[in-house]
């Protein structure tokens, strides 16, 4: 049996959302500032690993019933499609479109299809990292 650590459990509950939100922030700004899908994916995986360590593999699967292996092709497909659609529209592969939009509350923001590509990378990184860690960790 695994011994439970009260301190680790409490802390990981507290920091979970902080890290997740920060990783989303990195993901969304990645296409024109430091950040991006890769680093955001690693950071998200780090929070999951922390949960994994604090609560054990079974509990984690109950909280987060995601098949991480499936995330890999999903991410690849997302990135692939983002690259491929411009090709169908007569632009070179991977061309990114961007523009400005006004949203309620947030005001004017810049959108770019590069975010979708980053999202794909994000999925792949989370999928790969979590698959590897759970494959090694559950033994």
């Amino acid at each position: 049996m695994r011994s439970r650590s009260f301190i680790l459990e409490t802390v990981s509950r507290l920091v979970l959302f902080v890290i997740l939100i920060f990783s989303l922030y990195l993901l969304l700004r990645g296409h024109n500032a430091p950040g991006g899908g890769f680093i955001a994916g690693l950071m998200t995986s780090a929070t999951f690993v922390l949960q994994f360590l604090a609560f054990g593999p079974t509990n984690q699967r109950n909280i987060l019933p995601i098949n991480f292996r499936l995330l890999i092709p999903v991410g690849l497909l997302t990135s692939f499609t983002t690259g491929f659609v411009p090709l169908l529209l007569g632009k070179p592969f991977l061309t990114s479109a961007f523009g400005h939009a006004t949203l309620p509350i947030l005001g004017e923001i810049e959108w770019a299809t590069a975010v979708l590509f980053d999202l794909g990378v994000y999925f792949v990184v989370v999928g790969v990292t979590m698959s590897i860690i759970s494959a090694i960790g559950e033994e």
Binding site: I72, P73, L76, F80, F84, L87, P92, F93
Partner: peptide
């Protein structure tokens, strides 16, 4: 300029993605 010459890279990639599913 020919945007399509990347296809020999994309066909196998797309096939691989489908196979991973």
């Amino acid at each position: 300029q020919s945007n399509w010459i990347i296809l020999p890279v994309l066909f196998p990639l797309f096939g691989a993605i489908l196979n991973f599913f």
